[in-house]
């Protein structure tokens, strides 16, 4: 049984994760995204961006490993081997750009058990040292 005392808590912020240009290009290639704004620095700058623009789902590259580490922590008692991803939302306060130094704080928003499944909502607040960048919300489901 996952530890309900985590609900409502925020884990310590992790970072900085530096958004590398090659990571943006690698991720874009992996989802088949050919937008020149994610690949070509000259095109991105000509469009008014400081650096390459990450594809909208890029944040998963640094949020999911943190989520995985939390869910594999025996202290939380979550069955990672039977987990499926139920729902994912990403809200941008500004786009993620190459060169960003990002800090991620996981908030354990809710944990419910219904019909033989544990349903966990984790919210990641992603920010630079100066400003909020994105809020991602993941619903994760595992067998009870």
């Amino acid at each position: 049984m996952p530890d309900e005392s985590f609900v409502g808590r925020a884990l310590p912020a992790v970072g900085p994760f530096q958004v590398g240009r090659e990571k943006i290009r690698e991720f874009a290639a992996a989802i088949g995204d050919t937008s020149p704004l994610s690949l070509d620095l000259d095109v991105a700058r000509a469009a008014g961006h400081r650096d390459l623009v990450a594809p909208p789902t890029f944040s998963t590259t640094f949020t999911m490993p943190l989520i995985e580490a939390f869910l594999k922590d025996p202290a939380f008692d979550w069955d990672y081997t039977r987990m499926v991803h139920g729902d994912q939302r990403i809200v941008f306060h500004r786009p993620i750009l190459g060169g960003d130094d990002l800090f991620t704080t996981i908030h354990v928003d809710s944990l419910t058990t219904r019909a033989g499944s544990h349903m966990l909502t984790l919210r990641c607040e992603v920010a630079t040292a100066e400003e909020p960048v994105a809020t991602t919300t993941s619903l994760l489901v595992t067998q009870a």
Partner: peptide, 14 residues
């Protein structure tokens, strides 16, 4: 839309 920075939010259920 031509520019990924124009996406303000995105998400789905699996």
């Amino acid at each position: 839309v031509g520019d990924p920075s124009r996406v303000r939010s995105y998400g789905a259920r699996f």
